[in-house]
C-alpha cells in the first residue's frame, strides 16, 4: 500500500543536517552521512502517496511536515531467536546450587 488516507497513522522523514553541515566534533564516519529524523502522526491531507511531502499531527498535537515514508509503520521490536549460548545457563546454575555441578 503506497497511498495513505487522512487520519492514517504514518511516518515522515526529514534530513536535518546534510553532509558538510555536521558538527565539527563528530567522527569521520558520522560526518560522512546526513543527520536524519523520523516522526509519526496522523496524516492531515485527504490522500497522499509515499514519497511526497505531507503534514501530520503528532501525538502531542503538533503539525509537522516531511516526506511520507511509511503507512502504519512496523514497531520492528521482538524477542529475536532463542540463544543457544543462554539456554543452558539455568540448568547449569541449578546443578551447582544443588551440589551437582563443578564449583
Amino acid at each position: 500500500m503506497s497511498q495513505a488516507q487522512k487520519g492514517d497513522w504514518v511516518q515522515i522523514y526529514q534530513v536535518i543536517l546534510p553532509v558538510g553541515e555536521r558538527a565539527p566534533q563528530v567522527p569521520a564516519e558520522t560526518a560522512g552521512v546526513p543527520l536524519e529524523m523520523w516522526v509519526k502522526g496522523f496524516l492531515e491531507e485527504e490522500q497522499a502517496q509515499v514519497g511526497t511531502d505531507v503534514t501530520i499531527r503528532s501525538l502531542a498535537g503538533r503539525l509537522l511536515q516531511g516526506q511520507l515514508v511509511a503507512i502504519k509503520p512496523d514497531y520492528e521490536v521482538n524477542y529475536g531467536f532463542p540463544q543457544p549460548e543462554l539456554l543452558t545457563i539455568g540448568v547449569e546454575l541449578r546443578a551447582i546450587l544443588e551440589g551437582n555441578g563443578n564449583v
Binding site: 536535518i16 543536517l17 555536521r22 563528530v26 529524523m37 502531542a60 503538533r62
Partner: peptide, 19 residues
C-alpha cells in the same frame, strides 16, 4: 508512544541537541 508522547527519532550524532 504508548503513553502518548510525540517521539522524534534521529540518526546518530550529538547534533540531536539542535533538534
Amino acid at each position: 508512544e504508548a503513553y502518548g508522547a510525540e517521539v522524534i527519532q534521529m540518526t546518530v550524532g550529538p547534533e540531536l541537541f539542535y533538534q
